Amino acid sequence: MSDQDDIPFYEKPEWADIVPIPQDDGPNPLVPIAYTKEYSTTMDYFRAICRTQEQSERALDLTKIVIELSPSHYTVWHYRQTLLKALNKDLSSELDWIQYMIDENPKSYQIWHHRQVIVDHISAALLPADVPTSSTFSTLTTASGGIPYNALSEQQKEAAREAVKVELAFIAAALEEDSKNYHAWSYRQWVLSHFGPGPWWAEELEYIDKLLETDIRNNSAWNQRFYAFTQGPLGLSQENVEKEIKYTKTKIERTPSNESPWVYLGGVLRKANHPMSEIKEFCESLLPMPRANFSPYLHSTLLEIYEEEAKARRTIESVTKAKEAAVMLAEKVDPIRAKYWNWRKGQLNNISVEA
């Protein structure tokens, strides 16, 4: 380490020509923010280079200093992207720095978004010549419509697969530290969809299965499974839906009081336009199980099934059965929400019964 490393940047001779611009809080600020001297001075210099729209290596270095002091400073991130484009910088080193920043600040949305911008720009090189890209004066060129994977050459497909592999591994490492990191999951969904209908969609289901084997109550993983299954290129064929229903049933049998697989199962059925009655026999088979009998998710699903049947059949017997399910929830299984279940029971009176 040189002696220069201990000197604040604004005391170095290469910054002597810059006249810092102090923050203007007006003549009588009521409650001025108590910034540290380091941050306040750094921002004074940043405002100065912003005013002149300076595009230089020192300006790029200054954005790094500001971001490391305040990782959520959106304006500085945007200015950094402008400089990366203007200076034609090597973006692979930018990805390395982003990895360091995410390790230090895993919940900063701005850092995750910056990585998306950089990866988007890098991936634009994969686009066929006849596919338009998006670019503005102040941002990097991007493949705004995503990568048409099936239209790529074999060499380009291999490059896309490698890019996805790197990003998914990077995200998986972040999720090992915090499996509920919303920004990591959101970015993961973007990566999957941005690079098109490649093999990573099927691999994603395998990855999620491993997560659920580790923690079957990982609601973020269940949410990601729904995204991968319903938005991916595999499709909602009868075979795929039946396979997914079977998979979810095995998870429910393990933890019948776990809300996530119940929500997932209902979501898959509705997305595929399958009736809830399709799982009636399965739900009723769980009732004799002691650990399932008092699951509010089992009984609320049965209520939904019986209500669906009551609306279709319009018989006294079907309406009565639905009401009994609502009473069971209100009085025995989920009394803390008794008012809601009694309201649901009252709604059943709106079904006109046919003689």
Rank of each mutant, 00 (worst) to 15 (best):
S144P: 01
A160D: 03
P261T: 08
E324Q: 15
T139H: 02
E331I: 02
A228W: 14
Y79G: 12
S220G: 08
P71L: 12
Q156K: 02
Y74A: 02
A169M: 13
S295M: 10
S300H: 11
I67F: 07
W222Q: 02
I111W: 10
V31D: 14
I252G: 08
W343V: 06
Q4A: 15
T250G: 07
F170C: 00
I351Q: 02
S2M: 09
W200R: 08
G146I: 04
I245H: 02
G266A: 01
V31E: 14
P275I: 03
E213L: 15
E11K: 13
L91D: 03
E94S: 01
S352A: 00
S257D: 15
S138M: 13
L269M: 02
A228V: 15
K64V: 09
Y227F: 15
L62A: 14
P8L: 03
I65H: 13
T250W: 04
L152A: 00
I7V: 15
I67V: 06
K246S: 13
K210E: 14
E242C: 08
S92K: 06
K37N: 13
E68Y: 06
K243Y: 03
A310V: 10
E14C: 02
I305N: 03
S295G: 06
S220F: 14
S277L: 02
T315S: 07
L87A: 05
S72Q: 13
L265Y: 07
H274T: 00
